[in-house]
Amino acid sequence: MPGRPYLHCVLGILCLSGVPRTGQAMGDEGNSHTIVQQAVATELTADRNDHTHWLYFEVDKKPDKAVSQWVAETAHGNLKRVVEQNGQKVPETQQRKSMDSFSQDPDQVAKQRKNEQHDDAQATELLKLLPQAFVWTKTDEADGNITLHFKPNPQFHPPDWESRVFAAMEGDMVVDMAEHRIVSLKGKMIRDVKFLGGLLGGLKAGGTFDVERRKTGGNEWQITETHVHIQGRALLFKSISENEDDVKTKFKELSADVSLHQAEDDLMHAAS
């Protein structure tokens, strides 16, 4: 689902009662930490209970590839109808051929699901670290939202290489206080991160990321925009582009038991 971890994005399942309050202070900082814990707990519970499937339009731009496509989520995998690639329209016959090729290839379907499960698990682990990895301070409150600034917690020791990148960031998180949902998470790399002295690559300070989320129906929230611009190359993160702008719009909920064949029909009737 688009509302589940993209980074990216930082949604999974966690029992927050066991999260240590490393670096927590009294007063505003302690209150901010509590708000973060509550928002994370809400997101994790929602993700665990979310069994919806969505159809949406996506524009994904990378340095070497730009794609406009319709995407339909199913329990079997995500089916994609590419309508434009690198500025060139894709003929409808080719659109169908590509979708049929995916649907009829069990290996492709299994590979996609395996990659998604890996990304979900990684994002879950990162989400678990949010209350611990950063020092949180409330900076603004308006229109039902609260803005919390985060910076690395000097007492936090990243348990793995992925969290080393995560803990080298500083930025802001906006929380919808009525529903305790994360509206946006944005920040920048404030220091270089190298792996094995640079042998496995590294990321440079100054890179930025921005994840935006919106309510798309009922109590469901989805990631609608992701912007990642980080300099460097990390061999550890093969599935994550360091320079990417991804925007999702025109969300429509599909039936819970939608098949790949039904999804293809829905995609072919979608109009941009």
Score class of each variant (00 low, 15 high):
I223S: 07
K114H: 12
R164C: 09
D100H: 10
E125M: 13
M99Q: 00
L16R: 11
I223R: 06
Y6W: 08
S255M: 10
G206C: 01
I190S: 10
F57G: 12
A39F: 08
H261K: 15
G198A: 12
V247D: 09
L44D: 11
I190Y: 07
K138C: 09
Q88V: 10
E162Q: 13
M26S: 15
N86G: 00
I146H: 08
R181L: 12
C9Q: 08
A142R: 14
D50M: 02
H227S: 15
G218T: 10
Y56W: 10
P154K: 11
H261T: 11
D50I: 05
E43S: 13
L267Y: 10
W136L: 08
E162P: 02
I13S: 13
L126Y: 09
Q112F: 07
A234V: 02
K128P: 00
A167Y: 02
K111A: 14
S272R: 12
K250W: 06
V82P: 00
L129D: 09
F156R: 04
Q104T: 10
A256I: 11
H8R: 15
P20T: 08
E84W: 00
R214G: 01
A25P: 02
M99N: 02
E92K: 13
S272K: 08
K128R: 15
L79E: 04
G207W: 03
M189K: 05
N219Y: 03
G30K: 03
R164N: 05
A256R: 14
A142G: 07
V83R: 04
T137W: 01
F150C: 13
F156I: 00
P2C: 07
P2Q: 10
L199M: 14
H76G: 06
